[in-house]
């Protein structure tokens, strides 16, 4: 049976193989988005001493399905003053980068769709594209709220991308490679060999910038209900709105996956290097560890949303430009020196 599958796989054309591989990544990501919306409502509900959705299906598991069906049935209203073509391109442009970035994410030592040398650079380049979807959507809506929301969102994403880029440069110096697989392999050794410890400030800045990049609370001024209704997607309805929603959550998962790969040892077991315990957990595939790390980081996203009030806009800008960028630059020098003098444990 297994041989048969391998034979069938070998006889399929390469293009079809790649398409199947892409599906094998995109479908689980989409399903994770559905699960994440459910988890978000449930966890935030629990933190607010409520129980969250529990009516559709056992314990409310089918709630995301019900939401999707609802959004599919709804009409997509295109405002009469809107630019039709751009209005429809907007959500697609914001979802596509969130999905294509997954091409270079290694799920295991060898399990990666495109094992390219400039993986980190590719991720940076592709995630920066997401802001165009937002700007185009806000502009094409021809609505003042959407326009203001898009401006806020774009300014915020662009500012935090600098801090994020510097944080990634620190990782790049520490690992000495742009290939995501090599970066993870450079963290081999044990729990404390992972880059979160030598790059702790950079890790925090990367993750907080990630929250800001994805426009999640407490940095969600782009959709501040009290001032600009829903921000850049105020004119969107039905499936077009759902695509924005999908993009936001896919971006959250992507940021968490990158944080897990770059700072938390990716697929490496947290028990590595600890005698005995290492043997006990040796059977667990690396992908499980990666998924667990992603899940923990996603939980942090939801925890933040349930805890922190929204930042004021000038505070967001101050935090990005006057706090994060200086700290990352300082830490770049620290990491550079540590690598230069081969600081034991991490860089020897």
């Amino acid at each position: 049976m297994f041989d048969f599958i391998l034979q069938a796989w070998a006889s399929t054309p390469v293009t079809a193989q790649i398409v199947l591989k892409i599906l094998a990544i995109v479908l689980p990501v989409t399903l994770t988005v559905a699960a994440l919306t459910y988890a978000e409502r449930k966890i935030i509900g629990y933190i607010q001493v409520r129980i969250g959705p529990n009516r559709v299906g056992p314990r409310g598991w089918l709630q995301p399905i019900a939401d999707i069906v609802k959004l599919l049935m709804k009409e997509i209203i295109i405002p009469s003053g809107a630019n039709r073509a751009l209005f429809i391109i907007g959500p697609i442009l914001s979802l596509a980068p969130a999905l294509i970035a997954w091409a270079v994410i290694p799920f295991d030592n060898t399990l990666v769709l495109a094992d390219i040398n400039a993986g980190l650079l590719y991720v940076l380049a592709v995630t920066s594209m997401g802001v165009y979807g937002v700007i185009i959507a806000g502009w094409a809506s021809n609505s003042k709220y959407a326009f203001l929301g898009a401006l806020r969102c774009a300014a915020q994403i662009v500012s935090y991308e600098i801090a994020m880029g510097f944080a990634l440069v620190a990782v790049l110096i520490a690992a000495g490679s742009l290939n995501l697989g090599d970066i993870v392999r450079a963290q081999e050794g044990s729990f404390v060999h992972w880059f979160w410890l030598p790059l702790l400030p950079v890790f925090l800045i990367y993750f907080i910038s990630g929250v800001a990049e994805t426009n999640r609370a407490p940095f969600d001024v782009a959709e501040g209900e009290s001032e600009i209704v829903a921000g850049f997607h105020v004119e969107y309805s039905g499936m077009a709105f759902a695509v924005f929603y999908l993009a936001e959550y896919a971006n959250m998962i992507l940021v968490s996956a990158l944080a897990a790969l770059l700072f938390l040892g990716g697929w490496l077991s947290p028990f590595e290097g600890i005698p005995f315990v290492e043997q006990v957990f040796a059977w667990v595939p690396g992908m499980i560890w990666l998924l667990l790390k992603i899940a923990v980081l996603l939980f942090l996203f939801l925890w933040f949303r349930a805890t922190f009030p929204r930042y004021r806009y000038d505070q967001i800008m101050r935090l990005g430009w006057k706090v994060f960028i200086p700290i990352t630059i300082v830490w770049l020098i620290v990491v550079g020196l540590a690598v230069l003098y081969k600081l034991p444990w991490w860089f020897d």
């Binding site: 933190i47 607010q48 001493v49 925090l204 933040f304």
Partner: peptide, 22 residues
Amino acid sequence: FLWELFGGLRLTGKYLFSKKIT
């Protein structure tokens, strides 16, 4: 060092496990 923010996270973290009143 985000002192107050960690305090806030601790508080909401505690509520995550409290008895639900729905």
